[in-house]
Simulated assay, not measured.
Amino acid sequence: MKEKIKKACAIWNPIAGNVRRNEKNIDLAIDFFKQKGYEIVKKATVGPLTATQIARDAAYNGAEYIIAIGGDGTINEVLNGMHDTNAILGIVPMGTANLLARQINIPTNTVKALKSLDNVDIQEVSLGKANDRYFILMTGIGFDGYIISKITSNLKTKYGKLAFAYHATIESFLYSYPVFSMKINGRELTSAFAIVALSKEYGGLFSLTPKANLQSEQFQVCIFHKRGPFTFWKYFISALFRMHDKLPDVTLEYADTIEVYSEEKVWSQIDGELFTQLPVKISIVPKGLKLLVPRTAKHSFPTYKESR
């Protein structure tokens, strides 16, 4: 019996991380999926949030698979266009941080990434919803949102993680660390920086939410209560050595709904991209997305199911 042709749309961001410097890898990825039996159309984004519309149009026009080629920001835009469809998301990492790829054991080297996708299964994963936007990794409130608001797309493309490191170092001494409130599990907590996550990974160096899981029906939430530059560096060093959860002024919680608000101007980010100023209401969407996952990532999924 002839194998059914799988219709797919590959969406790539021309200015994401390594994409501009490795456009030949785009063709390599497209050829890989064609050889795997996909009838694939390639579409480039032309500006912010255009990947969302491309993904939505592709899904509603019969694409069974949407392949996001780029970084976590591109993936976020794509999933926002397909979360309420039956389409399945695949990723080829070519961005700055590539946290989702790290989480599901896809190498950042394109050849190795494609090799890892040679043996995959479809897994249902949860999504977070922040106001009217969906995310798959995390929402950050406070310092990281502020830093991202300072970094232009040109700086990010040219310097990658160094742009974040530079601005974070400088702004750690200049930032006012405005306080905000979090309504969580029937309590109201105050914070100067917080992460609401489905991913263990944060920033490539840290694991602020070590028990977060892409298939969980609850977020793991990391709340840093105190403020100020010296407190920031105390948190930074503790988190670097994965000892932040031992600090008395750090709280780790599990929750499926969180409300965050402030009388001050506080920025937030989702999946490493600037989102909005507070207030933000965050909720979880269990089994909100179907994702192509290499079988080598079985250990990261408590309810891993083989597709065949």
Score class of each variant (00 low, 15 high):
Gln103Trp: 05
Gln103His: 12
Gln103Pro: 04
Gln103Met: 07
Gln103Ala: 14
Gln103Phe: 03
Ile104Val: 10
Ile104Glu: 02
Ile106His: 05
Pro107Ile: 03
Pro107Leu: 03
Asn109Thr: 05
Thr110Lys: 02
Thr110Asp: 01
Thr110Val: 12
Val111Ser: 15
Val111Trp: 04
Val111Asp: 11
Val111Gln: 14
Lys112His: 07
Ala113Asp: 03
Ala113Thr: 04
Ala113Pro: 02
Ala113Phe: 04
Ala113Lys: 01
Leu114Arg: 01
Lys115Ser: 09
Ser116Ile: 04
Ser116Tyr: 03
Ser116Leu: 00
Leu117Ala: 10
Leu117Gly: 06
Asp118Phe: 09
Asp118Ile: 13
Asp118Tyr: 11
Asn119Ile: 08
Asn119Arg: 15
Asn119Cys: 08
Asp121Asn: 15
Asp121Arg: 14
Asp121Val: 11
Ile122Trp: 06
Ile122Tyr: 08
Ile122Thr: 05
Gln123Val: 15
Gln123Asn: 12
Val125Asp: 06
Val125Glu: 02
Ser126Gly: 13
Ser126Met: 08
Leu127Tyr: 08
Leu127Asp: 06
Gly128Met: 06
Gly128Ile: 08
Gly128Tyr: 06
Gly128Phe: 04
Gly128Arg: 05
Gly128Val: 07
Lys129Cys: 11
Lys129Tyr: 07
Lys129Gln: 15
Lys129Asp: 06
Ala130Asn: 14
Asn131Ala: 13
Asn131Pro: 14
Asp132Val: 15
Asp132Met: 11
